[in-house]
Design a binder for these strands. Sequence first.
DNA 1: TTCAATCTCGGTCTTAAGGCGGAGGAAGAA
DNA 2: TTCTTCCTCCGCCTTAAGACCGAGATTGAA
Lengths: 208, 208
Amino acid sequence: MIRVIVVDDHEIVRKGIIAYLQTEDEFDIVGEASSGNEGAELILELKPDVVLMDLMMENGNGIEATKHVMEQLPSCKIIILTSYYDDEQVFPAIQAGAFSYLLKTSSATEIATAIKKAASGQNVIEPKVAGKMMNSFRSENKKAHDTLTERELEVLLCIGNGMTNQEISEKLYIGIKTVKTHVSNILSKLEVHDRTQAAVYVHRNQLL
Amino acid sequence: MIRVIVVDDHEIVRKGIIAYLQTEDEFDIVGEASSGNEGAELILELKPDVVLMDLMMENGNGIEATKHVMEQLPSCKIIILTSYYDDEQVFPAIQAGAFSYLLKTSSATEIATAIKKAASGQNVIEPKVAGKMMNSFRSENKKAHDTLTERELEVLLCIGNGMTNQEISEKLYIGIKTVKTHVSNILSKLEVHDRTQAAVYVHRNQLL
DNA sequence: TTCAATCTCGGTCTTAAGGCGGAGGAAGAA
DNA sequence: TTCTTCCTCCGCCTTAAGACCGAGATTGAA
């Protein structure tokens, strides 16, 4: 039996998930909570094998709850089950220690499978989310372009689109002289010799 | 009931598939054939909903049979089920009018699912094959660079690597003037304004 | 043979690109 | 406040880039 706790502030969602999970006799729903704070307490008290956690909740969000739980009970597998797959949500959740990341568009079967896999130590990442993660990873292995300032990065991406200095200056509403300055700084930071190589850099590093 | 015909010159394979399909009561195996010619005749006579067709057969291959059938009976869904996923096989099959394309490494369940989906109008393409198709599509939608001469393509790829005219001339053992000529021709053929855009073109079209 | 395409190279000219040095203003950290 | 970073912009200068025009050599097809 896999001991499970469901944390979601929408009762209908929570009850629905629980009802479905109870149709399979592998799951033992030991508790449920409607907020991050409540959920964290319950989890630390009951020490379930797996937790289904929503991210966006009224009292204390899922990320904080996840972080808090993982500090006290690192063996607990927390599966994030949310509607959002923005960079702002996914990354902090993974960093907080979430074990799997599913979207609410997932089928009941997929969720059940994810719980079983989590109990046996396998991660499950929603494809859409996986893509985001790959991107994050890429930007994680910070390359030369992490030394670029925001403005320089903007200019670099313009170069990556094949724009001339003139076009860039018009797009960014700055003087062409300024663009040239940025370009020069970019070239030296990326250690390339001209804008063409900079454009190649952009595409090789999939910045665009 | 979905009326199905199985065409495959290996009896064991054919009988095996039929035996499995008969375990599900949604399928009505109305006929079977061991060659493309025989299969085409049988299909036109019995007008099944779905046909499972092997590609490599002794008498008349599956592609010709498919083409022939589709001319007479375009509503018939022909599922190609073969061991090969070479470019030479896949593409002609699709062009001949094949509805789905599966490999024999597929599980029985997948095949059954594919038949049901075909009956309801949904295509199923084996992932490995889908990849090939994507590539074919890319080379099918012939882009601007197909008008380039070999030499020009060489130069273009150099540009895509961020090389200067000087470097290109040294690599290809030609004068820098010649390189400039090629570059000018490339730019006008690709309808871009400078080498940076040409480099972007290379990477966007994954020529490198 | 004639013709077309391709590769090669030349001259001339204009301009975008990029290096170098300097500098003022704004915002945030020490 | 002082210092630093960043964004902005200036002038001067050199050179690579690219357009335009022409042309000889080779090859293969008609």
